Simulated scan of single mutants.
Amino acid sequence: MTAEQIGAYEAKTHLPRLLDEVARGESITITKHGRAVARLVPVAPEAERPEAVIAALRAARVGVRRGDDSIRAMIDEGRR
């Protein structure tokens, strides 16, 4: 995987080619007046997407108990 820098005007002109490069796993930094302003990167695999992580966390907490304390009691305990 290589990283390439390209100016905003050139990126606009060559977007289809850039998307092909990103689809092959490359990441591209878009610059404006010499300063990096954006990155084109491949989409994360399904397991790394936020929705998948949230679903895994929810599944992991099924059956986990917080004890006998109510939420109010825990909040009050944290304020002491």
Rank of each mutant, 00 (worst) to 15 (best):
M1N: 10
A3C: 13
A3E: 14
E4P: 00
Q5P: 01
Q5S: 14
Q5T: 14
I6E: 00
I6G: 02
G7C: 01
G7L: 00
G7T: 04
A8M: 13
A8H: 07
Y9G: 07
Y9T: 13
E10A: 07
E10D: 10
A11M: 01
A11T: 03
A11D: 00
K12D: 10
K12Q: 13
T13P: 00
T13A: 14
T13E: 12
T13R: 12
P16W: 11
P16S: 13
R17I: 01
L18R: 04
L18F: 05
L18V: 01
L18W: 01
L19V: 02
L19C: 08
L19S: 06
D20F: 01
D20K: 09
E21W: 12
E21V: 01
E21K: 15
V22P: 00
A23Y: 10
A23T: 11
R24Y: 06
R24Q: 15
G25C: 06
E26T: 02
S27L: 08
S27Q: 14
S27T: 15
S27D: 12
I28S: 02
I28D: 00
T29F: 05
T29P: 00
T29G: 04
K32R: 15
H33A: 15
G34I: 06
R35A: 09
R35H: 10
A36G: 09
A36T: 09
V37W: 04
V37D: 04
V37I: 15
V37L: 10
V37M: 10
A38S: 06
A38W: 00
A38M: 04
R39V: 07
L40C: 11
L40P: 04
V41K: 05
P42Y: 07
A44K: 13
P45C: 08
P45R: 11
P45E: 08
P45W: 04
E46D: 13
A47Y: 15
A47V: 15
E48S: 06
E48Q: 12
E48N: 09
R49S: 03
P50E: 15
E51A: 09
A52D: 03
A52E: 04
A52W: 02
A52Q: 05
V53H: 05
V53Q: 13
V53G: 05
V53Y: 06
I54M: 15
I54K: 14
A55P: 07
A56G: 06
A56F: 02
L57R: 11
L57G: 12
R58G: 11
R58W: 03
R58F: 05
A60Y: 05
R61G: 00
R61C: 04
R61H: 06
R61L: 13
G63W: 05
G63Q: 07
G63P: 04
G63R: 04
R65E: 15
R65Q: 12
R65N: 07
R66E: 13
R66S: 13
G67D: 01
D68N: 09
D68H: 04
D69S: 15
D69H: 10
S70C: 03
S70V: 05
S70P: 02
I71R: 07
A73G: 02
A73F: 00
I75T: 10
I75P: 03
D76V: 13
D76P: 02
D76K: 11
D76M: 11
D76W: 08
E77L: 12
E77P: 03
G78P: 05
G78Y: 10
R79D: 11
R79I: 02
R79V: 03
R80L: 11
R80E: 09
